[in-house]
Simulated scan of single mutants.
Amino acid sequence: MAVPRGRLPLVAAVAVFLAFLCCRGEAAARELKVGYYAETCPEAEDIVRETMARARAREARSVASVMRLQFHDCFVNGCDGSVLMDATPTMLGEKDALSNIDSLRSFEVVDKIKEALEERCPGVVSCADIVIMAARDAVVLTGGPNWEVRLGRDDSLTASQEDSDNIMPSPRANASKLISLFAGLNLSVTDLVALSGSHSIGEARCFSIVFRLYNQSGSGRPDAHMDAAYRRALDALCPKGGDEEVTGGLDATPRVFDNQYFKDLVALRGFLNSDQTLFSDNARTRRVVKRFSKDQDAFFRAFIEGMIKMGELQNPRKGEIRRNCRVANCSPVASRVVDI
Protein backbone atom coordinates (compact mmCIF):
# COMPACT_ATOMS: atom_id res chain seq x y z
CA MET A 1 0.00 0.00 0.00
CA ALA A 2 1.09 3.58 -0.53
CA VAL A 3 2.76 5.30 2.40
CA PRO A 4 2.34 9.07 2.98
CA ARG A 5 5.61 10.98 2.49
CA GLY A 6 7.58 11.33 5.71
CA ARG A 7 5.70 8.49 7.53
CA LEU A 8 6.87 4.94 8.26
CA PRO A 9 4.54 1.96 7.72
CA LEU A 10 3.05 0.73 11.02
CA VAL A 11 5.13 -2.45 11.17
CA ALA A 12 8.30 -0.54 10.30
CA ALA A 13 7.58 2.07 12.98
CA VAL A 14 7.00 -0.66 15.56
CA ALA A 15 10.21 -2.36 14.47
CA VAL A 16 12.18 0.86 14.95
CA PHE A 17 10.72 1.28 18.44
CA LEU A 18 11.45 -2.32 19.41
CA ALA A 19 14.96 -1.99 18.04
CA PHE A 20 15.47 1.07 20.23
CA LEU A 21 14.32 -0.85 23.30
CA CYS A 22 16.43 -3.84 22.40
CA CYS A 23 19.61 -1.92 21.72
CA ARG A 24 19.42 0.27 24.81
CA GLY A 25 20.39 -2.55 27.12
CA GLU A 26 23.51 -3.75 25.38
CA ALA A 27 26.85 -4.22 27.13
CA ALA A 28 28.64 -1.31 28.77
CA ALA A 29 32.18 -0.26 27.81
CA ARG A 30 34.93 -2.63 28.89
CA GLU A 31 38.54 -2.19 29.92
CA LEU A 32 41.02 -2.53 27.07
CA LYS A 33 43.89 -4.94 27.58
CA VAL A 34 46.38 -7.10 25.72
CA GLY A 35 45.15 -10.69 25.39
CA TYR A 36 41.53 -9.72 25.95
CA TYR A 37 40.25 -12.74 23.99
CA ALA A 38 42.77 -15.25 25.41
CA GLU A 39 40.03 -17.30 27.05
CA THR A 40 36.90 -16.45 25.06
CA CYS A 41 38.42 -16.68 21.56
CA PRO A 42 42.11 -17.62 21.78
CA GLU A 43 42.53 -17.90 17.99
CA ALA A 44 41.07 -14.46 17.27
CA GLU A 45 44.30 -12.70 16.35
CA ASP A 46 45.48 -15.63 14.23
CA ILE A 47 42.19 -15.66 12.33
CA VAL A 48 42.44 -11.93 11.62
CA ARG A 49 46.01 -12.15 10.35
CA GLU A 50 45.35 -15.22 8.21
CA THR A 51 42.34 -13.58 6.58
CA MET A 52 44.32 -10.39 5.97
CA ALA A 53 47.12 -12.40 4.38
CA ARG A 54 44.66 -14.05 2.00
CA ALA A 55 43.17 -10.66 1.13
CA ARG A 56 46.64 -9.30 0.37
CA ALA A 57 47.37 -12.27 -1.88
CA ARG A 58 44.20 -11.49 -3.86
CA GLU A 59 44.81 -7.73 -4.02
CA ALA A 60 47.90 -6.09 -2.57
CA ARG A 61 46.15 -2.74 -2.13
CA SER A 62 43.41 -4.15 0.09
CA VAL A 63 45.42 -4.34 3.33
CA ALA A 64 46.36 -0.67 3.11
CA SER A 65 42.68 0.16 2.63
CA VAL A 66 41.74 -1.84 5.72
CA MET A 67 44.50 -0.17 7.77
CA ARG A 68 43.05 3.26 6.97
CA LEU A 69 39.73 2.24 8.45
CA GLN A 70 41.23 2.64 11.95
CA PHE A 71 41.91 6.34 11.40
CA HIS A 72 38.49 6.98 9.87
CA ASP A 73 36.77 5.02 12.63
CA CYS A 74 38.62 6.20 15.73
CA PHE A 75 38.58 9.91 14.92
CA VAL A 76 34.77 9.98 14.78
CA ASN A 77 33.37 9.35 18.28
CA GLY A 78 36.10 6.87 19.17
CA CYS A 79 37.08 3.40 17.99
CA ASP A 80 33.65 1.79 17.83
CA GLY A 81 33.29 0.24 14.36
CA SER A 82 30.82 2.93 13.31
CA VAL A 83 32.61 3.50 10.00
CA LEU A 84 31.68 -0.05 8.98
CA MET A 85 27.93 0.50 9.23
CA ASP A 86 25.76 0.78 6.14
CA ALA A 87 23.22 3.58 5.89
CA THR A 88 19.61 2.73 6.76
CA PRO A 89 16.30 4.50 6.10
CA THR A 90 16.72 6.20 9.49
CA MET A 91 20.52 6.73 9.58
CA LEU A 92 23.04 8.43 7.31
CA GLY A 93 26.23 6.38 7.67
CA GLU A 94 29.83 7.52 7.81
CA LYS A 95 30.62 5.69 4.58
CA ASP A 96 28.81 8.49 2.75
CA ALA A 97 30.69 11.32 4.50
CA LEU A 98 32.62 13.70 2.25
CA SER A 99 36.05 12.28 3.16
CA ASN A 100 34.87 8.66 2.86
CA ILE A 101 32.48 8.31 -0.06
CA ASP A 102 34.08 6.64 -3.08
CA SER A 103 37.32 6.58 -1.08
CA LEU A 104 37.16 4.06 1.77
CA ARG A 105 37.15 0.50 0.49
CA SER A 106 37.81 -3.17 1.30
CA PHE A 107 34.90 -3.43 3.74
CA GLU A 108 34.42 -6.94 2.38
CA VAL A 109 37.73 -7.96 3.97
CA VAL A 110 36.35 -7.00 7.38
CA ASP A 111 33.19 -8.95 6.51
CA LYS A 112 35.26 -12.06 5.84
CA ILE A 113 37.17 -11.67 9.09
CA LYS A 114 33.93 -11.25 11.02
CA GLU A 115 32.37 -14.29 9.32
CA ALA A 116 35.36 -16.45 10.29
CA LEU A 117 35.29 -15.21 13.88
CA GLU A 118 31.54 -15.70 14.22
CA GLU A 119 31.94 -19.27 13.03
CA ARG A 120 34.65 -19.95 15.63
CA CYS A 121 33.52 -17.70 18.51
CA PRO A 122 30.01 -16.39 17.91
CA GLY A 123 29.11 -13.10 19.57
CA VAL A 124 32.53 -12.57 21.14
CA VAL A 125 34.86 -10.40 19.01
CA SER A 126 33.73 -6.86 18.23
CA CYS A 127 34.01 -5.26 14.81
CA ALA A 128 35.83 -2.34 16.44
CA ASP A 129 38.53 -4.71 17.68
CA ILE A 130 38.73 -6.35 14.24
CA VAL A 131 39.64 -2.96 12.75
CA ILE A 132 42.39 -2.49 15.35
CA MET A 133 43.86 -5.97 14.81
CA ALA A 134 43.58 -5.78 11.02
CA ALA A 135 45.32 -2.38 10.91
CA ARG A 136 48.25 -3.79 12.87
CA ASP A 137 48.40 -6.82 10.60
CA ALA A 138 48.36 -4.67 7.45
CA VAL A 139 51.57 -3.08 8.69
CA VAL A 140 53.21 -6.39 9.63
CA LEU A 141 52.27 -8.10 6.37
CA THR A 142 53.88 -5.33 4.33
CA GLY A 143 57.19 -5.34 6.18
CA GLY A 144 56.47 -2.93 9.02
CA PRO A 145 56.77 -3.38 12.79
CA ASN A 146 54.68 -5.62 15.00
CA TRP A 147 53.10 -4.68 18.33
CA GLU A 148 50.61 -5.95 20.89
CA VAL A 149 47.12 -4.50 20.56
CA ARG A 150 44.83 -3.67 23.49
CA LEU A 151 41.37 -5.08 22.88
CA GLY A 152 37.93 -5.15 24.46
CA ARG A 153 35.97 -2.47 22.58
CA ASP A 154 32.23 -2.47 22.03
CA ASP A 155 30.62 -1.71 18.70
CA SER A 156 28.48 1.39 18.40
CA LEU A 157 24.75 1.12 17.83
CA THR A 158 24.75 3.87 15.23
CA ALA A 159 26.92 5.97 12.91
CA SER A 160 26.88 9.64 11.99
CA GLN A 161 27.66 11.09 8.58
CA GLU A 162 27.39 14.58 10.08
CA ASP A 163 29.99 13.87 12.76
CA SER A 164 32.36 12.46 10.17
CA ASP A 165 31.88 15.47 7.89
CA ASN A 166 32.62 17.77 10.82
CA ILE A 167 35.78 15.95 11.92
CA MET A 168 37.61 14.22 9.08
CA PRO A 169 40.09 16.33 7.08
CA SER A 170 40.10 16.55 3.29
CA PRO A 171 43.10 15.79 1.04
CA ARG A 172 43.44 19.59 0.74
CA ALA A 173 44.05 20.09 4.47
CA ASN A 174 47.20 21.98 5.47
CA ALA A 175 49.58 21.21 8.31
CA SER A 176 48.13 23.81 10.68
CA LYS A 177 44.64 22.38 10.36
CA LEU A 178 45.94 18.85 10.86
CA ILE A 179 47.91 19.85 13.96
CA SER A 180 44.77 21.40 15.44
CA LEU A 181 42.66 18.32 14.63
CA PHE A 182 45.13 15.94 16.25
CA ALA A 183 45.67 18.18 19.26
CA GLY A 184 41.93 18.11 19.90
CA LEU A 185 42.26 14.36 20.37
CA ASN A 186 45.35 14.63 22.59
CA LEU A 187 47.65 13.51 19.77
CA SER A 188 50.94 15.33 19.34
CA VAL A 189 52.72 16.73 16.30
CA THR A 190 54.92 13.64 16.33
CA ASP A 191 51.81 11.45 16.42
CA LEU A 192 50.41 13.38 13.45
CA VAL A 193 53.50 12.91 11.32
CA ALA A 194 54.02 9.28 12.34
CA LEU A 195 50.41 8.31 11.69
CA SER A 196 50.50 10.10 8.35
CA GLY A 197 53.21 7.53 7.58
CA SER A 198 50.40 5.01 7.15
CA HIS A 199 50.54 6.36 3.58
CA SER A 200 53.75 4.37 3.24
CA ILE A 201 51.49 1.75 1.66
CA GLY A 202 48.52 2.02 -0.66
CA GLU A 203 47.19 4.21 -3.44
CA ALA A 204 44.90 7.21 -3.88
CA ARG A 205 42.75 8.52 -6.72
CA CYS A 206 43.54 11.29 -9.17
CA PHE A 207 40.38 12.93 -7.80
CA SER A 208 42.34 13.73 -4.65
CA ILE A 209 45.16 15.59 -6.40
CA VAL A 210 43.92 17.21 -9.64
CA PHE A 211 43.55 20.54 -7.84
CA ARG A 212 47.26 20.36 -6.91
CA LEU A 213 48.21 19.82 -10.52
CA TYR A 214 46.06 22.44 -12.18
CA ASN A 215 44.50 24.84 -9.67
CA GLN A 216 46.29 24.92 -6.31
CA SER A 217 44.48 27.34 -3.96
CA GLY A 218 42.44 28.65 -6.89
CA SER A 219 45.56 30.00 -8.62
CA GLY A 220 45.06 28.17 -11.89
CA ARG A 221 48.61 26.86 -11.42
CA PRO A 222 50.16 23.68 -9.98
CA ASP A 223 51.39 23.39 -6.40
CA ALA A 224 54.77 25.09 -6.18
CA HIS A 225 55.89 22.53 -3.59
CA MET A 226 56.23 19.74 -6.12
CA ASP A 227 59.32 18.34 -7.83
CA ALA A 228 59.12 19.18 -11.55
CA ALA A 229 59.79 15.64 -12.78
CA TYR A 230 57.29 14.23 -10.32
CA ARG A 231 54.68 16.74 -11.44
CA ARG A 232 55.16 15.70 -15.07
CA ALA A 233 54.66 12.06 -14.05
CA LEU A 234 51.45 12.99 -12.22
CA ASP A 235 50.30 15.08 -15.19
CA ALA A 236 50.59 11.95 -17.31
CA LEU A 237 48.79 9.81 -14.73
CA CYS A 238 46.07 12.37 -14.03
CA PRO A 239 45.62 14.57 -17.12
CA LYS A 240 43.28 17.55 -16.88
CA GLY A 241 39.78 16.34 -17.71
CA GLY A 242 40.92 12.71 -17.47
CA ASP A 243 39.60 9.76 -15.47
CA GLU A 244 39.77 10.84 -11.84
CA GLU A 245 39.26 7.27 -10.60
CA VAL A 246 42.75 6.27 -11.76
CA THR A 247 45.03 5.59 -8.78
CA GLY A 248 48.67 6.23 -8.03
CA GLY A 249 51.01 5.08 -5.27
CA LEU A 250 51.11 7.23 -2.14
CA ASP A 251 54.88 6.88 -2.17
CA ALA A 252 57.51 5.27 -4.36
CA THR A 253 57.16 1.88 -2.58
CA PRO A 254 53.37 1.57 -2.11
CA ARG A 255 53.45 -2.14 -1.27
CA VAL A 256 56.18 -1.92 1.38
CA PHE A 257 55.80 -0.30 4.80
CA ASP A 258 58.99 1.72 5.19
CA ASN A 259 60.16 5.32 5.54
CA GLN A 260 60.21 6.02 1.80
CA TYR A 261 57.09 8.15 2.31
CA PHE A 262 59.14 10.67 4.32
CA LYS A 263 62.02 10.62 1.86
CA ASP A 264 59.50 11.46 -0.86
CA LEU A 265 58.12 14.40 1.14
CA VAL A 266 61.64 15.83 1.55
CA ALA A 267 62.14 15.44 -2.21
CA LEU A 268 58.80 17.25 -2.84
CA ARG A 269 57.26 14.05 -4.17
CA GLY A 270 54.30 13.71 -1.82
CA PHE A 271 51.17 12.50 -3.60
CA LEU A 272 48.53 14.19 -1.43
CA ASN A 273 48.51 17.84 -0.45
CA SER A 274 47.80 16.82 3.15
CA ASP A 275 51.04 14.81 3.05
CA GLN A 276 53.33 17.29 1.32
CA THR A 277 52.17 20.10 3.60
CA LEU A 278 53.83 18.32 6.53
CA PHE A 279 57.21 19.12 5.02
CA SER A 280 56.55 22.22 2.98
CA ASP A 281 54.29 24.38 5.13
CA ASN A 282 55.14 23.99 8.82
CA ALA A 283 58.45 24.06 10.70
CA ARG A 284 57.20 21.81 13.52
CA THR A 285 56.09 18.99 11.26
CA ARG A 286 59.05 19.50 8.90
CA ARG A 287 61.52 18.67 11.67
CA VAL A 288 59.77 15.35 12.35
CA VAL A 289 59.52 14.50 8.65
CA LYS A 290 63.26 15.04 8.23
CA ARG A 291 64.02 12.85 11.26
CA PHE A 292 61.86 10.00 10.04
CA SER A 293 63.31 10.26 6.52
CA LYS A 294 66.74 9.51 7.98
CA ASP A 295 65.78 7.06 10.73
CA GLN A 296 63.29 4.33 9.88
CA ASP A 297 63.48 2.80 13.36
CA ALA A 298 62.47 6.13 14.89
CA PHE A 299 59.48 6.24 12.54
CA PHE A 300 58.47 2.70 13.44
CA ARG A 301 58.63 3.42 17.17
CA ALA A 302 56.60 6.61 16.83
CA PHE A 303 54.08 4.92 14.54
CA ILE A 304 53.44 2.15 17.07
CA GLU A 305 52.98 4.71 19.84
CA GLY A 306 50.59 6.75 17.68
CA MET A 307 48.51 3.74 16.67
CA ILE A 308 48.18 2.64 20.30
CA LYS A 309 47.19 6.15 21.42
CA MET A 310 44.69 6.48 18.59
CA GLY A 311 43.25 3.10 19.54
CA GLU A 312 42.55 4.43 23.03
CA LEU A 313 40.00 6.94 21.70
CA GLN A 314 36.72 5.61 23.02
CA ASN A 315 33.00 6.12 22.53
CA PRO A 316 31.50 6.63 26.03
CA ARG A 317 28.07 5.38 24.96
CA LYS A 318 26.91 1.83 25.55
CA GLY A 319 27.43 -0.59 22.72
CA GLU A 320 27.23 -4.22 21.68
CA ILE A 321 29.09 -6.96 19.84
CA ARG A 322 27.63 -6.81 16.34
CA ARG A 323 26.93 -10.07 14.59
CA ASN A 324 27.23 -8.27 11.26
CA CYS A 325 29.69 -5.37 11.12
CA ARG A 326 27.46 -3.46 8.72
CA VAL A 327 24.36 -3.22 10.91
CA ALA A 328 23.38 -3.03 14.58
CA ASN A 329 21.99 -6.28 15.96
CA CYS A 330 18.62 -4.74 16.72
CA SER A 331 18.29 -2.67 13.57
CA PRO A 332 14.94 -3.18 11.78
CA VAL A 333 16.84 -3.61 8.52
CA ALA A 334 18.55 -6.69 9.95
CA SER A 335 15.38 -8.63 9.32
CA ARG A 336 12.67 -8.33 6.72
CA VAL A 337 9.89 -5.88 7.51
CA VAL A 338 6.53 -6.49 5.83
CA ASP A 339 4.49 -3.46 4.81
CA ILE A 340 0.77 -3.73 5.65
Rank of each mutant, 00 (worst) to 15 (best):
F75W: 10
P42W: 06
R231M: 12
L117Q: 09
V76E: 10
E108A: 09
E148F: 01
A87Y: 06
I113A: 10
S156I: 11
L234Y: 05
R323I: 14
V34F: 00
T253C: 00
T285P: 07
V14I: 12
M168N: 14
I304K: 13
M1A: 14
N77Q: 11
P42V: 01
L151D: 04
G152R: 00
R54L: 07
Y37A: 01
A175Q: 08
F71C: 03
C23T: 00
T142Q: 03
I101V: 01
V63I: 02
V83K: 00
A55P: 02
V266A: 13
Q296M: 15
N259H: 14
D223Y: 07
D129C: 01
S82Q: 03
P9R: 02
W147Q: 00
T40Q: 04
A134F: 08
P239S: 04
N315W: 01
R205V: 08
R172I: 01
C79A: 11
F279W: 15
L234W: 07
I209F: 02
F257A: 05
C127P: 12
D137Y: 11
P89V: 07
S62G: 09
N186S: 07
T253D: 15
G242C: 14
C79W: 04
S62H: 09
R24I: 06
V246G: 06
N329K: 11
A2G: 11
N329E: 13
V140F: 12
G218C: 09
K240N: 13
N324L: 14
E162T: 15
W147N: 08
S106G: 02
D227N: 14
R221F: 07
S219Y: 02
I304R: 13
Q276T: 11
E50Y: 01
E119N: 06
E244P: 01
T40Y: 04
D46L: 06
S335P: 15
L181M: 05
L92F: 04
D155V: 10
I308C: 03
R287T: 00
L195C: 11
R49S: 04
V48N: 07
V131E: 00
L237E: 07
Y37L: 07
D227V: 10
L268P: 10
L192G: 09
A97M: 12
Y230T: 08
T88F: 05
L278H: 06
N324S: 15
R68I: 08
D223E: 11
D281G: 10
C74R: 11
E31Y: 01
F17K: 06
S126D: 00
A19I: 02
R291E: 10
A135G: 00
V327L: 15
V337S: 14
